[in-house]
């Protein structure tokens, strides 16, 4: 889905959100809703659960916009993105089998994941899409936590290059 590349001022938008401005809420939902929904679908396969997660994400964003200010995060979308992934992981707890990464096979992150070497790809999948800690991934794969940390670092260096290209 093509969205307009118009950038909305984060500071003004947060001010309006904290004041409970319904116009600002609608603007945020219309502008960022599809992007956040896609981030959630990368983690959750079930549509109903994904909708439930998106509801929780927006209720949190609208009611606790002050948390963005307090977090010290730089961009509003960066903060919302992390909130959406965390909420999706929380809702997805107990989901068996593959996650929702097949929902949007053309997404940048999935294309990046598919291009990673097998070992690093497994580590990245478990850390990002399943939300597992490095220690948990190490136990699961029979590796040392340092090895997992090193592979994840390699993945992040590769992601930096991928994003720049």
């Amino acid at each position: 889905m093509q969205q307009s590349a118009v950038h909305i001022d984060d500071y003004i938008l947060t001010e309006r959100l904290m004041a409970g401005d319904p116009v600002a809420r609608e603007l945020i939902y219309d502008h960022y809703g599809p992007a956040l929904y896609n981030i959630i679908l990368e983690v959750i396969a079930d549509n109903e659960k994904a909708e439930n997660a998106l509801t929780q994400v927006f209720v949190y964003i609208f009611n606790d916009a002050v948390a963005y200010r307090e977090s010290g995060d730089i961009t509003l979308f960066g903060w919302m993105r992390r909130v959406a992934r965390q909420m999706a992981l929380k809702v997805a707890v107990g989901e068996l089998g593959d996650n929702g990464t097949m929902m949007n096979s053309g997404s940048l992150l999935l294309r990046f994941t598919m291009g990673l070497p097998e070992g690093i790809q497994t580590v990245f999948r478990l850390c990002y899409y399943k939300g597992l800690s490095k220690e948990a991934v190490a136990r699961m794969l029979g590796l040392q936590p340092e090895e997992v940390a090193s592979q994840l670092r390699e993945a992040m260096i590769a992601f930096r290059k991928f994003l720049n290209n």
């Binding site: 969205q3 992007a35 053309g106 994003l163």
Partner: peptide, 17 residues
Amino acid sequence: VERRMEMVALTEGVQPP
């Protein structure tokens, strides 16, 4: 970095019901 990711996310968005 975050703006770059934002631009990509906005173009890849999936319209919720």
